[in-house]
Design a binder for these strands. Structure first.
Lengths: 222, 222
DNA sequence: CAAACATTTTACATTATTTTAACAATTTAT
DNA sequence: ATAAATTGTTAAAATAATGTAAAATGTTTG
């Protein structure tokens, strides 16, 4: 599901974490020290970095600082140090999470999943509101278990609104996101979709598409 | 900086966390049980939910599940349970982080900062004065939690005045900012809006729209 | 290629907002 | 105190935004 860079000098632990992550369907590039990890990081792009703190060549803090400097890759520290001052330093360096050894394997996977979800990576999540369920993976919607046929545009728009209830989206904002850059479509097109979505979601309990006069549209829960 | 919903039934801890977060510049809405928190969550939008697990009415797991269902708000569990099986359940429910009591205050702030950074929440651009809250993102205003319907112009004007209390704005200044350049509207139009705003905000505690004779209008706190 | 479907435009009805205009109330200056 | 200027308020008129059906255009698929 996600591509993960692992930096851990303890061979046994390295192997264990590797097996664990691959078992969960992730692609793992494992390194034995911070230097090798940084090299790999420069070579490819990763969805997540899991790193030990005490390592040869480049320690976890230094590695994290380098990675932070170059982007927003989530970082999880995996370490034996169970001391708040160390954790503070970890977070200050840009850590997104901190797992203390020894750790429960399931818990590590759950924390990894939480981080990836938060970073919108491998987002296979479904949204359910009332009797409507939208599955981004399948790109289908269900109302009371029955499939609700939606076109691509309809799906995208509804999924977006549903992801941010109460937030108002301007027509322009929506078109910027779902229409080609060079699309010449009028923003009135959005209105037509909202009209269709309202018709199609008429039997949905739990939400309503509301127009914000002069601005755009929002979805409100009820 | 961010708008945080806190659910914690222990009064002392509730107060402590509240103070801590507010000291860090966040806006906090504190609730004493899960039910109240869910109600607040439906009423307004938040950047982060911090919740205890064992609470009356609705426990942390149930609250988290509801919140997860409705969007992508980050969730941090704050709990005395230091047991991996509980943590597993927390993460499975959609937790993004887990802090065990007793905790280091600085560490909590660091974890909160990490979560907000990850969620790309810089500032939520909301203003609260008395019982009125204006959320620029949602483009809605709330009085005592109830939505106060405002047109675009009304919202813009009130938000502006609220952003600079005590400062006097001339009609011309306001029109230059919110009206089209080629608009031929009379500056008397502003008067009409102020009249409407006064009517609509009649139940607002905390401020008042004051006329500065010969100049324009200003908002004063009380 | 043509049928089936998705998308976009158009046109017109409907609704909401903004502005004007008229008059009342208040403030200021003389 | 009184006239002049400014502001408050209201309802109607003018303008602007939205809803939606249907036609036109584009795209995919058998």
């Amino acid at each position: 599901m996600a591509k993960i860079l692992l930096a851990e000098d303890d061979a046994a632990l390295n192997h264990l974490v590797c097996t664990l992550l691959e078992g969960a369907g992730h692609e793992v590039v494992a390194c034995k020290d911070g230097g090798a990890a940084l090299e790999e990081f420069h070579r490819q792009s990763f969805d997540l970095l899991i790193t030990d703190i005490m390592m040869p060549v480049l320690d976890g803090y230094q590695l994290a600082a380098e990675v932070r400097r170059e982007g927003a890759t989530p970082i999880l520290f995996l370490t034996a140090l169970d001391d708040t001052s160390d954790q503070k330093r970890g977070f200050a360096t840009g850590a997104d999470d901190y797992v203390v050894k020894p750790f429960d394997p399931d818990l590590l996977l759950l924390r990894v999943a939480a981080l990836l979800r938060r970073a919108n990576i491998a987002d296979s999540r479904t949204i359910t509101v009332g009797n409507l369920t939208m599955d981004k993976e399948e790109h289908t919607a269900y109302v009371d278990g029955e499939e609700l046929p939606l076109t691509v545009r309809e799906f995208d728009l509804l999924f977006k609104l549903l992801s941010y209830p109460r937030r108002t989206f301007t027509r322009t904002k929506l078109m910027d996101e779902f229409w080609d850059f060079d699309s010449s479509a009028t923003s009135r097109t959005v209105d037509v979709y909202m009209s269709k979505l309202r018709e199609k979601t008429a039997h949905c309990t739990g939400f309503e598409i509301v127009t914000v006069h002069g601005l755009g549209y929002k979805l409100v829960l009820k």
